[in-house]
Simulated scan of single mutants.
Amino acid sequence: MKVLIAPDKFKGSLSAFTVADSIEEGILKVFPDAVVVKVPMADGGEGTVATLVNVMGGEIIKVRVKDPLLRDIESFYGILRDRNTAVIEMAAASGLYLLKEHEKNPMITTTYGTGQLIKDALDRGCRKFIIAIGGSATNDGGAGMAMALGVRFYNKDGKEVGFGGGELSKIYRIDVSNIDKRIKDCEFLVACDVSNPLVGENGASKVYGPQKGATKEMVEILDKNLEHFGRLLEKHFNKRIIDVPGAGAAGGLGAGLIAFLNARLKSGIEIIMDIVDLEQKVRNSDLVITGEGKVDFQTIFGKTVSGIAKLCKKYNKPCIAITGSIDEERQLYKIGITAVFSIIDKPMGLEEAMRDAEVLLKKSTERIFRVIKVLKDFD
């Protein structure tokens, strides 16, 4: 039996690598001679750097940057084996997980640290960039990122504006004369797992602002500010930005990357699957196991599980998803998932489930494959 294990992380609990190892252990208890191929996955959020460095070879670079509130922190990014490709997670510098609950405020948080990561990679000779933009704490349209790369924003009085989504309405003039000249020789590919436009009911502020600490009043202000900023960008760069799918990702960082770095936006899971040649691995497998921490209505919209499910459907391969909790599964069956299983085996709270996730995952996998063994023997 050839089994491909291609899971995402169980957020807040297990890395994709630990998930893959745990599933493998459960399989081998039942099928000790199984041929297991492990490909820990990511969809453009946290874990993208580790996944690509692990699969493609390379190294993790540690660097000091500013966090969303401009405090000094140690961050990281990856440089792949070719020494030319940098893999950056914006969350590593500008992510929501870097803030305590009372610190969340998209009116003042900035993507400046993300720009610092890009600059450091430029200094090390990288000219190809894969930027994962999930998990942001920001709503500044990428203005902070641009500032770190030399762009200046001025108000009507000719003074530079400050940081954060609350400052965008003050911008009157954009000056790119001092932007890092090396950018024009670079290729920027942006991995995002959402298709939201910059503004409106489905835009960055209204959909994601509340989880970043925005009140209802803040959401309205932030949306208007991003619209103002987006129109300035479209006028300055003479290109469509505001309604581009994904422009609203990471609080509008998608829009900023399109504008200032001429970046291309693509589904994160599609980028990762292409790089690790997942299609060939699915084709060569008898069975595929995937999973993530929670299966819900968002899963079908560009998440790891949905991307893998579609590949399995293409090649008529059975695909089992193992997850922490299940909110919605029926749509997954339509796109290629054969069955969905939760690791929860008794009534328990979230804290206990997350604490014991590794053990629960091994046990669940073993149970699933014991059933498979019976069916295989019966056949």
Rank of each mutant, 00 (worst) to 15 (best):
G268E: 06
A263D: 05
R264F: 07
V288I: 14
R264T: 10
N284L: 12
D274E: 14
M273W: 06
S267K: 13
E279P: 00
I289W: 04
K266Q: 15
N284V: 03
L265P: 15
Q280Y: 07
L257R: 01
V276Q: 02
V276T: 11
I289Q: 01
F260W: 14
D274K: 15
I269C: 04
I272C: 03
G256D: 14
D277S: 13
N262D: 14
F260Q: 13
S285W: 07
G268L: 06
R283K: 11
A263Q: 11
E279G: 06
E270N: 15
E270C: 14
F260S: 10
I275T: 13
A259W: 11
V276Y: 13
I272T: 00
L278N: 02
L287C: 01
R264H: 12
R283Y: 06
V276D: 02
S285R: 03
M273A: 15
E270D: 14
E279T: 01
G268R: 05
D286M: 11
V288P: 04
D277V: 12
I269Y: 03
V282P: 02
E270H: 12
A255G: 11
S267A: 10
F260R: 15
I269N: 04
Q280G: 08
G256Q: 13
L261I: 11
A259F: 11
G256S: 05
I289A: 03
I289P: 07
K281D: 14
I275C: 07
R283V: 02
E279V: 02
S267V: 07
A263I: 09
V288Y: 00
A259N: 12
N284T: 05
I272N: 00
G268W: 04
L265T: 10
G256H: 05
Q280A: 15
L278W: 13
E279L: 05
A263S: 11
V288K: 00
N262I: 10
I289L: 13
V276K: 06
N262S: 13
R283G: 01
